[in-house]
């Protein structure tokens, strides 16, 4: 189930991207599954097709899905395999400013670990 909040300050395409990633993390979607077509998902949500297209592109650039001609958006991310070097590096680049921000606000390593575990638990718990 995807939930988006149109009036939120977070753009819809980011919300959608995050929701798809969370669905994969929870195991609702797994490697090889196909996402609905851009038109179908946009119609279901009543949002612009460009919005859905943009979030699919984000997922492609994160190597989570792949656009296969005639099949659509197929999930290629595999949480049973080890993460590739490049992915790990790009993830660490994206995490860096956030970790820095946490440090700036005086969060120590233990608290940071706690925070990450809490977030992980939260992702898996959402029904």
């Amino acid at each position: 189930m995807l939930t988006v909040e149109p009036t939120s300050s977070i753009p819809i395409y980011i919300q959608l991207r995050n929701q798809v990633m969370e669905a994969i993390a929870r195991g609702e979607l797994s490697t090889g599954d196909t996402l609905p077509s851009v038109r179908a998902l946009a119609a279901d949500l009543g949002v612009n097709m460009h919005t859905v297209n943009k979030s699919y592109h984000e997922l492609v650039s994160k190597e989570i899905i792949e656009i296969v001609p005639k099949k659509g958006a197929v999930i290629i991310a595999n949480n049973k395999e080890n993460i590739s070097e490049e992915r790990l590096e790009s993830l660490s680049n994206e995490l860096k400013p956030l970790v820095t921000e946490a440090l700036v606000h005086g969060i120590n390593e233990i608290k940071l670990h706690d925070l990450v575990s809490k977030i992980m638990k939260n992702i898996k718990e959402v029904e």
């Binding site: 988006v4 279901d44 949500l45």
Partner: peptide, 12 residues
Amino acid sequence: VKQVRVADLSVR
């Protein structure tokens, strides 16, 4: 109230 739109990825 928080207003949302929902979609089921497997409904089709």
